[in-house]
Design a protein around this nucleic acid. Structure first.
Length: 646
RNA sequence: GCUGUUGUAGCUCAGGGGUAGAGCACUUCCUUGGUAAGGAAGAGGUCGAGAGUUCAAUUCUCUUCAACAGCUCCA
C-alpha cells in the first residue's frame, strides 16, 4: 500500500501500482470520465501510468492548463494519424501543444494542402477519435527507435532520436499510429469531441531558416462542441476588434506606401486620442517628480559607439545619415537612453540630487524586419513614453515601487483589470554574460522581487531572461478577450552608466556610479493604443474618445438650436460635432452608433422649445430629455472619474 | 529576411483573353422626417508596378512592390 496525498491535503491509501485513473474511478465515475492526465509529485504524467510510491496527486481535467495541453498534444498525434491515412508517406517533424491548440510540422514531399483539405483531415480525425483508441506508452531502446523510423523512412524523427539519451526514449501508439514522444497523453482518443484545424503555414525544420521549410498545420480541439463554438465566436470577435481594421474605420491612423512601410501616420481623430493619452501620463509623471526633457531625433554615430548599440545593432539599423562635411555620420535615434545619459552629464550631480528622473515622449526609429511589421504593434517609427531614472543603488527599490504605482495607475485608468508581472533575472548557473557587480545585481534583483511582492502583483519569475545589462520587470495585460499583451516595462541598467561614465558625488565625497532605470508604462504609444483599441473594441473611455458627443438635429428647423448647443458644449470643454446633413434621424443615429460615439443628442422642435437635449447613449438607447446642465454634469462626471465605456 | 496567400473605385468585394461591375461612402436635386439605412440622378478605376506571350492582357507567364498568415528576429 502507498499513501496518496490530494491537493486538499487529504491522504488516502491505495494499492501500489494503481493508476490515477483508477483513483479517479474510486472517487466517482463522473470524475474518471473527465480525467485527462495527472500530476504526480509535480510531474504531469499519463492518467494510466501506474503509481508505485507515496505521492502527491492532482487529477488534471479540461479546466487545468496542463490538462488542456495534454489533450492538445494528443490531438496532434490524432492529426498525424489522420495525415498518414490520407497522405501515405508523409514525414513528421514535431507536433506540440501550444497556448491555444496544437500544430504538427509535416513534410508532404511535394504535395500541397489547401483549406479544403483541412476539412477532409478534420473529418478523418473525427472518424478516428470515435474509435476510442487507447494511447499506449512504450519505453524503447535507442537502437530500436532508430530502426523503427529508419524503416519508416522519417529522417526528421531520426534526427530527433539521435539527440536523445538511450534509456529515456518512449513511443506512444494510438490506433495504427506510433510516434516518438515523451508524453503524457490522454487515456484515449474518445475525449476529443470537437475538432477544428485552423490554418496552414510554413515553418522551418527546427526553426532554422537554413533548413527545409515544412508545412505546419494548426488546430484546436475541445471536449465538446459548445466550447469549440465559443472559441470560434471569440476568434470572430477578435477579428472585429483588430486594431488595424478599427483604426481605419474610426479614422485613427493610416499607412502610406510612399511614406514607407512600418511608419504609421496619425489622422486627426487618432492624434487627438494620442495627445490626450500623452497628456494624461505626462501629468501623472510630473506629479511623481519626473522632469520633462526634449532631445533631438538624430544623434552622432559616436553616441552609439559609446553606448555600444552601434556595434550590436548598427548593421541592422537604419544606416547613418551623411552630411556634406566629410566623415560626419548621424543616426536616427533607436532609443532615448544615450541622449538622456548625456543630459545627466550636463552638470555634476551630488547624492542629494538623486534620483534624477528624465522623461520624454521620444520618437525612435528601428529597422524592423520586413515580415515582422504588424499594424501599430510592430513598426519602424514609434514614440516611447520613456523615462530614465538615475539613482543610488539603495534607491532602486523605492524607485521601483513608485514606477509600479504609476504603471498600475495607468492600467486602472484605462480599464485593464487583468495583469501579471514577469520578473526577469539572471541565469542561475551562468553569470558570465552579465555586466555589473554581483553585489548590485543581487540588490536590484531583490529590490524587484520585494517591490512586486509588496505591491501585491501577481508575478512570474523567469531565470535567464534578464538582459545582459540588468534585471527587469515586464507587465503583461489581458484584454477583454483574454489575450495577453506585453505593455509596460521597467529595466535596471548597469551598462550605460558605465559606458557613459556617469557619476555622482557621495556623502563620502567620493565619486560613485548611479544606477539607471529605464521605464515605459505604455511601452510605446503606438503599441499601447493598438492594445487599447482591441481591449475596448474601439469604444474608448469618454475622457479619451475623439468625439464625445454627436449632435443630431431632426431637421433644418432645429439647426440653429443645434449650433447653440454645440457652442455651449464647446464652452464646457466637451468635444461635440453636429451632423447637419439632410438625412433622417434614424440614419444619423445609425451612423453615430456605428462610429461608436458615446453620446448622441437628438434635437427636434420639442427640445428647442423646452430648451432641453434628448440624450441617447451608444449601444444603450434613449436616456430621455434633460437640461444641458444636467447633460454636461453627466459627461463631466464620466470624464473626471475616467469611467470605462461600458 | 524566408515560405505561402492576396492585390479590381475612398471602403467591402464580384468578374474575367476583346480595354470593367455591385453595395456603402462622395456630389447635386427632391424630401423636413422623432431614436439603427427616405428617393432620384451623377461623378469616380488606364484592374499594385514593370516586362514577356498574344492580333488583343486587367485576365496567362515572369520579375518587382505592398498587405496578410506563419517562421526567424526585436536595444
Amino acid at each position: 500500500m502507498m499513501n496518496i496525498t490530494f491537493p486538499d491535503g487529504a491522504v488516502r491509501q491505495y494499492e501500489t501500482g494503481v493508476t490515477a485513473l483508477d483513483i479517479a474511478k474510486s472517487i466517482s465515475e463522473g470524475l474518471a470520465r473527465k480525467v485527462l492526465a495527472a500530476k504526480v509529485n509535480g510531474e504531469v504524467v499519463d492518467a494510466t501510468r501506474p503509481i508505485t510510491t507515496d505521492a502527491t496527486l492532482q487529477l488534471l481535467t479540461w479546466t487545468d492548463t496542463d490538462g488542456k495541453s495534454t489533450m492538445w498534444h494528443s490531438s496532434a498525434h490524432l492529426m498525424a494519424e489522420a495525415l498518414e491515412a490520407l497522405y501515405p508517406g508523409v514525414k513528421l517533424g514535431i507536433g506540440p501543444a501550444i497556448e491555444n491548440g496544437f500544430y504538427y510540422d509535416i513534410d508532404l514531399g511535394g504535395r500541397t494542402i489547401t483549406e479544403e483539405d483541412l476539412r477532409k483531415i478534420e473529418a478523418k480525425m473525427v472518424e478516428l477519435s470515435k474509435q476510442n483508441s487507447v494511447y499506449t506508452r512504450a519505453e524503447i531502446s535507442k537502437a530500436d527507435a532508430l530502426k523503427y523510423f529508419t524503416e519508416k523512412g522519417d529522417e526528421y524523427k531520426l534526427e530527433l532520436i539521435n539527440d536523445l539519451q538511450d534509456g529515456t526514449i518512449t513511443f506512444y501508439t494510438q490506433g495504427g499510429f506510433t510516434d516518438l514522444c515523451r508524453g503524457p497523453h490522454i487515456p484515449n482518443t474518445g475525449f476529443i469531441k470537437a475538432i477544428k484545424l485552423t490554418n496552414i503555414a510554413g515553418a522551418y525544420w527546427r526553426g532554422n531558416e537554413k533548413n527545409k521549410m515544412l508545412t505546419r498545420i494548426y488546430g484546436i480541439t475541445f471536449p465538446n462542441q459548445k466550447e469549440l463554438d465559443e472559441y470560434l465566436a471569440l476568434v470572430e470577435e477578435a477579428k472585429k476588434r483588430d486594431h488595424r481594421k478599427l483604426g481605419k474605420e474610426l479614422e485613427l491612423f493610416t499607412f502610406s506606401e510612399k511614406v514607407g512601410l512600418g511608419l504609421p501616420m496619425w489622422l486627426p481623430k487618432g492624434a487627438l486620442l494620442r495627445e490626450r493619452l500623452q497628456r494624461f501620463l505626462q501629468e501623472a509623471q510630473i506629479e511623481t517628480g519626473y522632469l520633462p526633457v526634449v532631445t533631438p531625433h538624430i544623434g552622432n554615430k559616436n553616441l552609439y559607439v559609446t553606448s555600444g548599440h552601434y556595434e550590436k545593432y548598427g548593421k541592422d539599423s537604419f544606416q547613418p545619415i551623411h552630411t556634406p562635411e566629410e566623415g560626419e555620420e548621424f543616426m536616427l535615434k533607436p532609443m532615448n537612453c544615450p541622449h538622456h545619459c548625456e543630459l545627466y552629464k550636463a552638470s555634476p550631480k551630488s547624492y542629494k540630487d538623486l534620483p534624477v528622473r528624465f522623461a520624454e515622449f521620444g520618437t525612435v526609429y528601428r529597422y524592423e524586419q520586413h515580415g515582422e511589421l504588424h499594424g501599430l504593434t510592430r513598426v519602424r517609427g514609434f514614440t516611447q513614453d520613456d523615462a530614465h531614472l538615475f539613482c543610488r543603488p539603495d534607491q532602486v527599490k523605492e524607485e521601483f515601487m513608485k514606477v509600479i504605482d504609476l504603471v498600475l495607475f495607468v492600467f486602472e485608468s484605462l480599464g485593464f483589470k487583468n495583469y501579471t508581472a514577469q520578473v526577469s533575472l539572471r541565469d542561475k548557473e551562468d553569470r558570465s554574460k552579465y555586466i555589473g557587480s554581483e553585489e548590485n545585481w543581487e540588490l536590484a534583483e531583490q529590490a524587484i522581487i520585494e517591490s512586486a511582492a509588496e505591491k501585491g502583483l501577481p508575478t512570474v519569475v523567469e531565470y535567464g531572461e534578464a538582459a545582459f545589462y540588468g534585471p527587469k520587470l515586464d507587465f503583461m495585460v489581458k484584454d477583454a478577450l483574454g489575450r495577453k499583451w506585453q505593455l509596460g516595462t521597467i529595466q535596471v541598467d548597469y551598462n550605460l552608466p558605465e559606458r557613459f561614465e556617469l557619476e555622482y558625488i557621495g556623502a563620502d565625497n567620493a565619486r560613485h556610479r548611479p544606477v539607471m532605470i529605464h521605464r515605459a508604462p505604455f511601452g510605446s504609444l503606438e503599441r499601447f493604443i493598438a492594445v487599447l483599441i482591441e481591449h475596448c473594441g474601439g469604444k474608448f473611455p469618454l475622457w479619451l474618445t475623439p468625439t464625445q458627443v454627436k449632435i443630431l438635429p431632426i431637421s433644418d428647423k432645429t439647426q440653429e438650436y443645434a449650433e447653440k448647443v454645440a457652442a455651449a458644449l464647446k464652452k464646457a470643454d466637451i468635444r461635440a460635432e453636429i451632423d447637419d446633413r439632410s438625412e433622417k434621424i434614424g440614419k444619423k443615429i445609425r451612423e453615430a452608433e456605428l462610429a461608436k460615439i458615446p453620446y448622441m443628442l437628438v434635437l427636434g422642435e420639442k427640445e428647442a422649445t423646452d430648451n432641453l437635449v434628448a440624450v441617447r447613449r451608444q449601444a444603450k438607447g434613449d436616456l430621455g430629455a434633460m437640461t444641458l446642465e444636467q447633460f454636461t454634469a453627466l459627461v463631466n462626471d464620466e470624464v473626471v472619474n475616467r469611467k470605462p465605456f461600458e
